[in-house]
Nucleic acid binder design. Structure first.
Lengths: 256, 256
DNA sequence: GCATCGTGCTAACCTGGATCAGCCCAATTT
DNA sequence: AAATTGGGCTGATCCAGGTTAGCACGATGC
């Protein structure tokens, strides 16, 4: 058996193993899935709404995002993805893409045939469970985003987003909680929190003026995490990750 | 082997079998899952955010909904559920409830221990796949809702919701596409599309004034489905159901 | 060297939907 | 039959965020 940690596919393992214990054979099965790598330039489509994708893709480097377009041309960004994320289990397993998947930066992905994934899942219950769990967490994040968009004001929405992104980056080893780079433009930020780029700009400056963050180009430095998390009504529970006892969430809200 | 269609749990089968072919043994495994039934009155909690639910619940009759509460007391409704829906695979499999589940009307549910579900999934790949698929579709609906809330105006949001609910009711055998009962108040409707009940009221009257629907008490009669679907930017693809060739979606949008 | 383009940023104005305050009616309760 | 309650409904006013129309600046191209 080859060392499961040698293959480029090994970047998917840490995230899956947060939730489901895998043994060496499970890891080997995942890592020896057939794949081919491909590169995409910023804004290039990996999957378009309406496609019938035959493979799912694992993000090896760079950032990608998923989106939907509404009739009048508006766009809703549904998720950002980073190294180690299985970007498109959704579309590929459902058979019909209900949303777009695009590169945000230059990216490299491993395309894994849908059938191979299904076979691995059918053969190994823990592999199935790990991937199922991954889609459940994806759903949980989606629910939090819907809540963010539907029921928080602009300041809270952005603060919440900044907290989530910071934490995900740090967990993926791509940045620090209080000092990281945002790979998206303010317009893309707006499309993800349901605001216009103009208002994103205003609101970010507001967060800066309140002394919660400072920014240079696209670097964000969180100068007061506790307040940012409070303003953003951020509680990491919905990410279902193990913080190993670190306390980053604001104290429990008082019952109304 | 007992007839799989005798058990109350059999109500879950049609939905699962839309997506995944099951054989008699798969059905028998699902239907013979251990369970106990319970009733809930309107507004009663089945699961609260923060709970560690030990069972998942299958809705046998009535309507339920899932929601999150934000700091200032606002509520976002994330999903409505009807007979045959597995209401809480999300929370129970993730182990920690990231949202509330409540009865909307009087309901009867079958509570199925989480471990029994996981064992059935581990033992039978098709059962695992069917339930995984169910959560994928749930995620797809969530993405569409996020888009609805984030990027459509009040009229489109409500029109979209009315179309989705109509179709889901009809597929569950609980109403007709163009004539059905809405089980929720206008305030609950507002909490699901990100509006206030006041504006829901005005907007519904607007839809009525435009001749797309008529209403009596909570009955909705869709008088012009094609226009309602167009106004609501509704395309049923995201529900991933088989319409058996019926054409209910507006013609493909023209590229901008 | 000059043009173009993408992105951040800003100011002035406008509007969709929130907020507030209240009425009406039917169903319960007492 | 009076009182209460929960929805639906309405008008008046307000404001968060959208819209429009720019400018500034650096990167890229000819």
């Amino acid at each position: 058996m080859t060392d499961p940690h040698r293959s480029p596919l090994a970047v998917m393992l840490p995230k899956l193993e947060i939730w489901t214990a895998l043994d060496e054979e499970d890891r080997a099965a995942l890592v020896s899935l057939p794949y081919r790598t491909r590169s995409f330039a910023p804004a290039q489509y990996i999957v378009r709404q309406g496609d019938k994708p035959e493979s799912s893709c694992l993000l090896l480097s760079g950032f990608a995002f998923r989106s939907k377009i509404v009739r009048d041309g508006g766009r809703q960004i549904l998720a950002f993805h980073m190294r180690g994320d299985m970007v498109d289990l959704q579309n590929s397993l459902l058979g019909l893409a209900d949303h777009n998947v695009q590169a945000l930066t230059n990216i490299e992905v491993a395309l894994i045939p849908r059938e191979a994934i299904l076979e691995a899942a059918a053969a190994r219950p823990r592999v199935a469970r790990a991937m199922w769990h991954d889609t459940l967490v994806d759903g949980s994040i989606n629910r939090e985003w819907a809540t963010n968009i539907g029921r928080r004001d602009a300041t809270a929405r952005l603060a919440h987003f900044l907290c989530e992104f910071a934490l995900r980056l740090e967990l993926a080893g791509l940045g620090e909680l209080c000092n990281y780079e945002l790979p998206m433009t303010q317009e893309q930020l707006g499309d993800c929190v349901g605001l216009t780029s103009v208002h994103v700009n205003r609101t970010l400056k507001g967060l800066e003026a309140s002394g919660l963050i400072t920014r240079t180009v696209r670097m964000v430095r969180v100068t007061d995490w506790a307040k940012l998390a409070e303003v953003g009504d951020f509680n990491s529970a919905y990410l279902h990750v193990d913080l190993k006892g670190r306390s980053i969430d604001p104290p429990a809200r008082t019952e109304a």
